[in-house]
């Protein structure tokens, strides 16, 4: 400390020509900071590179025929393979359950005889409503937005708009269509 100070004093006269040690140190600090910032920016861009802006994934909304195509009291599996949707109709309403287990994303099976959805991966079970009652899953199945298309009266299902039971969203008008 004292040494560098005394040097700073003695070098003060020629400060215009030779940088003082203290000045040099702060330039060094700036240099290192710039270096770190550069690295940080580079790492960030690289990380961002992993997240594409455009996806080529299958479309997530579709027309699912007329309400009368579905039997009351049935879990309809006709869209399961193609769109991962079960259409369930009961006396009150029709709703679209997304066939993806909320545990880790397997596709549960509808076991009509036991009146439940059962996941083959770790055994989560759901009632017909989608509410979970057994196994490791932390929450119920998700419902997709469902509506009657004003153009042709067909059922229109949008998988991208999801309704979560635990957030109280199943009562949303778009989460089901009333059976008339």
């Amino acid at each position: 400390m004292t040494e560098s100070e005394s040097r700073g004093v003695s070098a003060a006269g020629s400060a215009a020509v030779a940088p003082t040690r203290r000045g040099f140190i702060s330039w060094l600090a700036v240099g290192w900071l710039a270096f770190a910032a550069g690295i940080g920016a580079f790492v960030t861009t690289m990380a961002r590179f992993l997240f594409p802006n455009v996806l080529f994934e299958p479309p997530s909304s579709f027309k699912a025929g007329y309400p009368s195509d579905y039997q009351v009291g049935e879990v309809d599996e006709r869209w399961k393979e193609k769109y991962q949707i079960w259409v369930v109709r009961n006396t009150e309403m029709t709703y679209a359950l997304i066939t993806v287990c909320t545990h880790l994303g397997c596709i549960p099976n509808w076991l009509a005889s036991q009146n439940k959805f059962k996941c083959p991966c770790h055994g989560s079970g759901y009632y017909r409503s989608g509410i979970n009652f057994e196994g490791p899953t932390p929450r119920p199945l998700e419902r997709a937005a469902i509506s009657i298309s004003p153009e042709d009266g067909q059922i229109f299902i949008e998988k991208a708009r999801k309704f979560l039971y635990e957030k109280g969203q199943w009562t949303d008008p778009a989460a089901s269509i009333k059976t008339t």
Binding site: K80, E81, K82, Q84, T99, C106, I107, P108, P120, C121
Partner: peptide
């Protein structure tokens, strides 16, 4: 992607 084997 539409059907998981049982058990998976």
């Amino acid at each position: 992607p539409g059907a998981a084997p049982n058990p998976a």
